[in-house]
């Protein structure tokens, strides 16, 4: 017994080291599991608060790009109004809502206070949380494209699982026809993502537009993602399809969060089908 104590005393630092190292590795591998990590994330009030403070300074440097982005989006929306024949110049114009109208998506705004794109698994932090109606698994976009999906939520902050993450899988499709694929990221270039399992029958050209597929309940169909930049064919299947994102993930200001009101209904239905 005494020898055991002697040994424990002799190797106490080694034991402490091994103990702490195991904890660190548990945290590491837990984080790879979506939504598993309990407290090692930047959505808590301390890191979120610090990031927000720092962001109030740094956002001034990006006002120009942010303004430009807003102006572009305004033009796009005005053109859309014109196509629909709505006269936006008349301030008293009232759009008559039909009784059957049922809103499916609600958009809300948030600001990115911490952006990452240099590592293999990137997460972002935004300044809105559970108090502002944010919950897990909501889609996040900005005016030019998709950003990611809400990962963890605290009272005032939330983290986003970026599309620039090795675990990211997104349902996408070609704009010109209805072929679906999955978008992933290989961890190399923050402007380029990859599409896998697109069937061979899908005819592709460099320059084709990729949009969200709408197969998942997170994103509505038809949000712009990017254009095909490089196609590689091997043994009659697509071995590599690179997509250049419309969105500049290295410079994100305000983002929009999409809430799908019919998500639960849809998931319940799909679940009941699977159980049969």
């Amino acid at each position: 017994m005494q020898q055991l104590f002697y040994l424990l005393k002799k190797f106490k630092y080694l034991l402490l080291f091994i103990f702490l190292e195991i904890i660190a590795l548990i945290f590491t591998f837990q984080y790879h599991n979506y939504h598993q990590s309990k407290f090692i994330n930047s959505a808590n009030f301390i890191t979120g608060g610090i990031y927000k403070k720092a962001n109030t300074v740094s956002e001034y440097f990006f006002l120009k790009t942010e303004n430009h982005r807003l102006a572009e989006e305004n033009i796009k929306l005005k053109n859309l109004l014109n196509i629909k024949g709505i006269d936006y110049s008349n301030p008293t114009y009232i759009y008559k809502d039909s009784v059957e109208y049922f809103q499916q998506y609600e958009y809300s705004i948030a600001k990115v206070i911490n952006n990452n794109y240099s590592s293999k698994n990137n997460y972002l932090t935004i300044d809105k949380g559970a108090l502002h109606g944010i919950s897990e698994d909501l889609g996040v976009i900005n005016s030019s494209g998709v950003v990611g999906v809400i990962n963890k939520v605290s009272k005032n902050y939330a983290t986003i699982f970026s599309i620039l993450n090795s675990g990211s899988k997104m349902n996408v499709r070609l704009k010109k026809n209805d072929h679906f694929g999955t978008m992933v990221w290989d961890g190399k270039n923050p402007n380029i993502t990859q599409i896998v399992d697109l069937p061979r029958q899908a005819l592709l050209k460099v320059g084709d537009t990729i949009i969200t597929g709408g197969k998942s309940a997170i994103f509505p169909e038809g949000i712009n993602i990017g254009i095909i930049e490089e196609i590689e064919l091997k043994n009659n299947y697509y071995s590599k399809i690179n997509v250049k994102l419309f969105n500049d993930m290295t410079s994100l200001g305000h983002v929009q969060i999409i809430k799908n009101f019919r998500k639960e209904e849809r998931q319940l239905l799909e679940l009941s089908v699977n159980n049969e």
């Binding site: 402490l16 190292e21 904890i23 590491t28 984080y31 990590s37 090692i40 930047s42 890191t47 997460y123």
Partner: peptide
Amino acid sequence: FLLLSFLLGIFIDIFMNSGGINAA
């Protein structure tokens, strides 16, 4: 020293959303 080094890594991990990589 070991304990503080571990904490230093954990703090960085929390900010960077990287699990326990920096701590390890």
